Amino acid sequence: MSLVELPLGGVYVSPMFLYALVALALTIALRKLLQATPAGRWIWHEALFDCALFTLLLAAVTWCAGIANG
């Protein structure tokens, strides 16, 4: 897996930043979905759950990007 900077308007952006933005959007969407269902009340510590969910999604997005890049 190669992590090559992407030039956006003359500024080099790390791909990890873009992966983190995707993971953050997925985290927010999953939290909204989880709060709309009764399963959301089983979360004991919401901040810890959000951090763990973001970490898992960031790992998944990075892994999927590595698979896509060959």
Results as ranks from 00 to 15, higher is better:
Tyr12Gly: 09
Pro7Ile: 04
Leu58Pro: 02
Leu57Ile: 05
Val13Ala: 01
Leu33Trp: 14
Pro7Asn: 13
Leu56Pro: 00
Thr37Leu: 15
Ala23Asp: 06
Asn69Met: 06
Ala23Tyr: 04
His45Cys: 03
Leu24Arg: 09
Phe54Ile: 08
Gly9Asn: 03
Leu33Ile: 08
Arg31Cys: 06
Ser2Phe: 06
Glu5Ile: 02
Thr37Arg: 14
Tyr12Lys: 14
Leu18Ile: 14
Val61Asn: 01
Ala60Ile: 04
Ala68Arg: 09
Trp63His: 08
Phe49His: 15
Ala60Glu: 01
His45Thr: 08
Gly10Ser: 01
Trp63Val: 09
Asp50Trp: 08
Phe17Glu: 15
Val13His: 01
Leu33Asn: 07
Ala25Asn: 02
Ser14Glu: 10
Gly10Val: 07
Leu8Ala: 11
Pro38Val: 08
Cys64Ser: 14
Val11Ile: 15
Phe49Thr: 07
Leu18Met: 12
Glu5His: 06
Ala52Asn: 04
Trp63Met: 08
Leu21Pro: 01
Cys64Ile: 10
Pro15Glu: 07
Leu33Phe: 09
Ala29His: 03
Gln35Cys: 05
Pro38Trp: 12
Asp50Arg: 09
Ala68Leu: 12
Leu34Asp: 06
Tyr19Ile: 07
Leu30Lys: 05
Val13Cys: 03
Tyr12Thr: 10
Ser14Arg: 14
Phe54Gln: 00
Gly70Val: 00
Val22Gln: 09
Leu48Asn: 02
Asp50Met: 13
Ala47Pro: 00
Ala65Phe: 07
Trp42Leu: 15
Thr27Cys: 10
Val11Thr: 15
Tyr19Glu: 14
His45Val: 13
Trp42His: 12
Ile67Asp: 04
Leu34Val: 13
Val13Tyr: 02
Asp50Ser: 11
Ala60Phe: 09
Ala39Pro: 00
Ile28Phe: 12
Trp44Ser: 10
Leu3Lys: 08
Pro7Glu: 15
Val4Arg: 11
Ile67Ser: 08
Ala65Ser: 10
Leu21Gly: 08
Arg41Met: 02
Glu46Cys: 00
Met1Tyr: 01
Pro38Phe: 05
Asp50Tyr: 12
Val61Gln: 04
Leu53Asp: 01
Thr55Glu: 00
Glu5Trp: 07
Phe54Pro: 01
Gly40Ser: 06
Ala59Gly: 14
Gly10Ala: 06
Glu46Gln: 13
Glu46Thr: 07
Cys51Arg: 03
Leu56Arg: 03
Ala36Phe: 06
Met16Trp: 14
Met1Asn: 02
Leu26Val: 04
Ser2Arg: 10
Gly40Tyr: 07
Thr27Tyr: 02
Pro15Lys: 06
Ile28Cys: 02
Ala25Ile: 12
Thr62Ala: 15
Ala25Pro: 05
Ala25His: 04
Gly70Ser: 11
Ala59Met: 05
Ser14His: 12
Arg41Ser: 13
Leu33His: 05
Trp63Thr: 08
